[in-house]
Computed example of a mutant assay.
Amino acid sequence: MDGLKSRANVIVMGVTNRPNNIGVPDEVGCLEVLHIHTINMKLAKDVDPEKIAKDTHGCVGVDLAPLCPEGALQCIREKMDVINLEDVEIDAEIPNSMAVKN
């Protein structure tokens, strides 16, 4: 489901027969999850993890974790017009100019 090309008509469903065993993190917990998944990402100045944690109340780690690599993939997709995947090396300016935006 991840990748650089868009896909249509994908439905993901998840269920559990033990809903009482799933705890929902508070704002601090959400912020910790976001920090873990963005620790090696360059974030643009408009990204406010504290606001995202506040806005994602009720989400669990499995909801929050995919947001981070999806943001990174979107960042790469935006640069695909200047990246030649057949090149042995990519100009260092390209990855240096990349940052995950809000």
Rank of each mutant, 00 (worst) to 15 (best):
P49V: 12
L64M: 15
C59P: 03
E27C: 07
C30V: 06
I36Y: 10
I39Q: 11
V10K: 07
H35E: 15
V60R: 10
I22L: 08
D46V: 04
G14L: 12
I22S: 11
M1G: 11
G29E: 10
I90D: 05
V88Q: 13
S6Y: 14
A65M: 13
E86R: 11
H57G: 14
E70S: 08
D91F: 06
N9M: 05
T16M: 06
A72V: 04
P66W: 12
I94K: 07
I39M: 07
E89H: 09
V82I: 15
L43F: 06
D63T: 04
D81I: 09
K5P: 01
A65R: 07
N9R: 11
M41F: 02
M41W: 03
A53Q: 06
A8Q: 13
V33M: 07
G61V: 06
D63A: 10
L67V: 01
P19E: 00
K5L: 08
V88C: 07
V100G: 02
G58Y: 00
A72C: 09
L4I: 13
P95D: 01
E32Q: 12
I94Q: 06
N96L: 06
C30T: 04
K42H: 02
D87S: 09
I22Y: 14
T16D: 04
V10N: 08
K101T: 11
K51L: 14
V62K: 04
I76F: 10
A99Y: 05
P69E: 04
K42C: 01
G61T: 01
G23N: 12
D91R: 05
A99S: 15
T38E: 02
L31N: 07
D81W: 06
I36Q: 14
C75D: 09
L85W: 07
V10R: 01
C75L: 02
I76C: 11
G14A: 14
N17Q: 12
V33I: 15
N9F: 07
I11S: 03
E50H: 14
L4Q: 09
M41C: 02
C59G: 00
I11A: 13
G71H: 06
T16L: 04
P69S: 08
I76T: 11
N17K: 04
L67D: 02
P95H: 02
G29D: 05
A44S: 15
E93R: 15
T16Q: 01
R77P: 02
N21H: 00
D48I: 11
L43D: 04
T38G: 02
C68R: 00
A72F: 09
E89T: 08
V28H: 11
N20F: 03
H35F: 09
P49H: 09
E86C: 03
V12C: 11
A65K: 12
H35N: 15
V82T: 13
E50R: 15
V10E: 05
G29P: 03
P66M: 11
N102Q: 13
V47H: 05
M13D: 10
V15C: 15
C59L: 06
E70Y: 00
M41G: 00
D2M: 13
G23C: 00
I76D: 10
A65W: 00
